Amino acid sequence: MTATTEPAPSVPDRRAGTWRRGRVIAVFAVLTAVLLLAHPLVPNWAGNAGSLLETFLPWTGLLVVPLLVAALVRRSALALVSLLLPTLVWGGFFGGRLVDQREQGGDLTIVSHNVNDENADPAGTARALADVGAQVIALEELKKSEVPKYEDALAAGYPHHSVQGTVGVWSTFPLRDTQPVAIMPWTRALRTTVDTPKGPVAVFVAHLPSVRVRLDAGFTANGRDGAVGLLADALAAESAPRTVLVGDFNGTADDRALAPITARLRAAQDEAGDGFGFSWPAALPLARIDQIFVSGVRPVAAWTLPATGSDHLPVAATVAF
């Protein structure tokens, strides 16, 4: 009688399994990368969805975190490798902002702050801004009855100033040709010339209309977008070789709605900052809606300041001529 041998049972290749598991996670990783790369294609006709996404675009990197946890739980090599794609794309967009790009020196330091018309301590806010030692201080959302408090607190160090509507500028250097800029039915923007020892600088201060997120209307930014166009027209008519635009834009430099401005001026924080420079809300900053844009000068440092009595953080930048 001939003995027969049965084939040995096959042993599953566990290494191969790690490349088969986690396909759904890998798909979501690819979609996250596509969302980052193709965010300009997200339409604005549906509740300004594209602008809303771009307002918080840096935070899309957090989508990788739950996907990474899921990949580790599933022990999926496929998912882990796929997560490199959104990580690299995010790094390409925002990695440079994680590096300290600030330098020493510079010719002019500017501070901009939405002081909040409900600020309980205008004088203390003004003194905190003056302590920075900037040559120019721009304020937005000034309440008419509180303006004298800011004037008194800044009078000693900033002998030159002008308030136009709800925005104002204080300077250690002389100001001239100051006038309101029409971006809304009431005055929320101004333009002035600061005569520095190294030459004049055109300074614009603006406070664009507020935006809201509503279930029935989406991202209500149409009023702001209209004001952006009017402000861009004023910038296009500017003949000064050096221009600085500061204020509360209720939008980030990544938002396509600000393209008429960012096509002409650069964000100081992106070129000379240390981090993202988030400025709102002050208690837990999530977006940089307070901006300092420049043209004809080189940013050498940009940063946010400690909280005051406002719901915004002040922002500052030093530029070189």
Rank of each mutant, 00 (worst) to 15 (best):
L85V: 15
V205S: 14
V69Y: 06
V181M: 06
T109L: 10
R288C: 05
L37K: 14
L258V: 08
G91E: 11
P241N: 10
G157L: 02
T252A: 06
T220E: 06
M184P: 01
E151P: 07
G273T: 01
R264H: 08
F276S: 11
M1K: 00
W303I: 07
W303M: 07
A253C: 01
G199Q: 06
V11H: 06
V194N: 08
A268E: 07
G223D: 10
W186V: 15
G199V: 11
V65H: 06
R102N: 03
H207K: 14
D195K: 02
N44P: 07
S51M: 09
T87D: 04
L62P: 07
S162K: 10
F28S: 09
H39T: 00
R102K: 10
T32Q: 13
R14M: 04
S239N: 11
A71C: 13
N119E: 05
E271N: 08
T178D: 14
I261M: 08
T4E: 01
N44S: 05
V11N: 05
L230F: 12
A267F: 00
V42H: 04
L52I: 02
T5D: 12
L78A: 05
G91C: 14
A49K: 00
P12M: 05
D274A: 09
A234R: 01
F249M: 09
S10E: 09
V81P: 12
V246C: 05
P200H: 11
M1E: 12
A240W: 11
A259L: 04
T60A: 04
L284G: 13
V300R: 12
W186Y: 14
E238A: 15
V163K: 09
G133N: 11
R127K: 03
Y158M: 03
A3M: 00
Q135E: 14
T178V: 12
R212I: 03
D121N: 09
W170C: 03
L208Q: 06
R191G: 07
D270P: 03
A283G: 12
T18F: 04
L41V: 14
L72F: 14
R191H: 11
T318W: 03
S210K: 15
R23E: 12
G309T: 04
G17S: 09
L31K: 06
R21P: 11
A268S: 11
L258A: 13
I292C: 08
L313V: 01
P285E: 13
V81R: 07
A227K: 04
T125C: 05
L57S: 08
I137K: 02
F249P: 02
R188D: 08
P58E: 00
L41H: 10
K198V: 15
A307Y: 02
V297C: 09
V27S: 10
E271A: 12
G92R: 12
W59S: 14
K143S: 14
Q164L: 13
I292A: 07
P281I: 09
V73T: 11
R266N: 03
G273I: 01
A317F: 03
V69W: 09
G105V: 15
H39I: 00
I25W: 04
A123Y: 03
A221S: 06
A153K: 01
L67E: 07
I292W: 08
L230I: 04
N116Y: 07
D311W: 11
G22I: 05
V111N: 01
A259Y: 01
E238W: 15
